[in-house]
Design a protein around this nucleic acid. Structure first.
Lengths: 115, 115
DNA sequence: CTTTCATATGAGCAACTGTTCATATGTATT
DNA sequence: AATACATATGAACAGTTGCTCATATGAAAG
């Protein structure tokens, strides 16, 4: 038997309900990792650019007035989170959004800050 | 006249469309700040607890197996982002969710990581 | 007013993050 | 093969973050 915590301040019923809906450790970790990706304005700006058009790395860099290296590093983060896809065309690599959750999440965030 | 960047890799038309939809500097900053708040699994766990019930600080601490101080610090972050409200009842302070965007944002994030 | 319980807060520290700089990889052209 | 262009990547550095520990604030009870 595991040692049971005391729960002096919480009803046992509430403890159970919370345990039922609380995501598992790995899901929580992944969820936090995902939102960390949205937690940087450079990455958000890249996503807004890709809303309008697929674009190559140096195109994004030009548009945002940042170095190719900085953009490439951030694209690697977005890629790892599966928020963007890419395809190669000759020397150039074009990045694009990978799904619609990106837009929904950013829209909801925007709604929240605009109250 | 501002010096105009070259835009060798991006069509002028795309530049204009992006400039139209790109949020302003302050909005971008606030949006990133908001998502940073969601980018920590302790804070996410607190939010999941509050989905089920309003709760005092030491109740949350008990439920999550963390110190009162750690939870209090994180509640301050959530409070600053206006994701939680609080009310005092005697010595105790009860925290609760402040609006529905929290749930929508977390749900969308969960949908994304579960593909 | 002193004690007790609940909560908040500041300093400190280890871990992490975003940019820059230098350099490597990869593709096409000559 | 040599060059040029597009992109990726590793090291380094300053700035930030989340926890702990000690302490402060605030409200109720004795």
């Amino acid at each position: 038997m595991e040692p049971q915590p005391a729960y002096n301040h919480v009803h046992q019923e509430t403890v159970q309900r919370v345990n039922e809906i609380m995501p598992g450790e790995e899901e929580l970790f992944d969820l936090a990792e995902l939102f960390k990706v949205f937690g940087d304005s450079t990455r958000i700006r890249i996503l807004y650019v890709l809303f309008e058009s697929d674009m190559c790395v140096c195109g994004i860099a030009e548009l945002l007035g940042m170095t190719q290296s900085a953009i490439s590093h951030q694209l690697a983060v977005l890629k790892k989170a599966k928020l963007v896809r890419y395809r190669r065309e000759g020397k150039t690599i074009f990045y694009s959004l990978s799904d619609d959750h990106v837009r929904t999440i950013l829209d909801q965030g925007m709604e929240h800050i605009e109250e």
